[in-house]
């Protein structure tokens, strides 16, 4: 464990908590893409199946359970409890166009052709693009509430910090994982445009609004 990875995990955790608290407090999931939340649930489920057969550390196990629970909790709030506030007309991204290529790529480019390994690889590929429906929703409505922006910023920071973690591990621990690194870079790049708007607008107290 190094500082980049710890900070990355903490921003990931913070992002998930921000989202849950926002939905709970405002009793509304307006502006949040349910499609992205479904993709994240698929990502965590396929990646954390190793909870059954691999033990790494109490930290690792607890975080995995928290991510899974929070992810399904968010889906419950969006699709059941506060369904009436869900922006279904704007959340029109076709997630099969992300799931199918991620699945095919996982079958072709992986470390080992074994069920759990392929599911892990699939989850890495899918996570790298899972935020697209959310970014698509923001671009469709042309704006995002500040709290949604904070959520996106924390989620983007998580993968950016992981890149520093991988650089550190490469030199300090002689370890690397090319699949995670390439997918992680793709994932971070997708947030760049948003990072720019966040820093130039949201941090100056303005609403995140896209030019018409």
């Amino acid at each position: 464990m190094n500082i980049f990875r710890l900070l990355g995990d903490l921003s990931h955790l913070l992002a998930i908590i921000i989202l849950l608290v926002k939905i709970w407090k405002t009793r509304s999931c307006a502006g949040i893409s349910g499609k992205s939340q479904i993709l994240f649930a698929v990502v965590y489920t396929s990646r954390y199946l190793d909870l059954i057969n691999a033990f790494i550390s109490p930290y690792n196990t607890i975080m995995k359970i928290v991510f899974l629970a929070a992810s399904y909790g968010t889906i419950y709030l969006m699709y059941m409890k506060f369904k009436a506030t869900y922006d279904v007309n704007h959340d029109t991204f076709r997630i099969e166009f992300l799931i199918a290529p991620a699945a095919v790529l996982a079958l072709i480019v992986n470390h080992a052709f074994e069920p759990l390994e392929i599911l892990w690889t699939f989850s890495i590929y899918l996570e790298s693009v899972a935020i697209l429906p959310q970014l698509f929703l923001v671009s469709k409505t042309g704006e995002a509430e500040s709290i949604t922006s904070h959520y996106l910023f924390m989620l983007g920071s998580y993968r950016a910090l992981y890149i520093f973690n991988w650089i550190y591990r490469y030199y300090a621990e002689n370890h690397y994982d090319l699949i995670a690194i390439v997918a992680g870079i793709v994932q971070t790049v997708l947030y760049c445009d948003f990072f720019y708007l966040y820093i130039t607008k949201v941090l100056k107290g303005k609403k995140l609004q896209l030019p018409a």
Partner: peptide, 10 residues
């Protein structure tokens, strides 16, 4: 030579 690491991250 650096090794591929096990899946020990989140």
């Amino acid at each position: 030579q650096p090794q591929q690491h096990p899946h020990d991250e989140l």
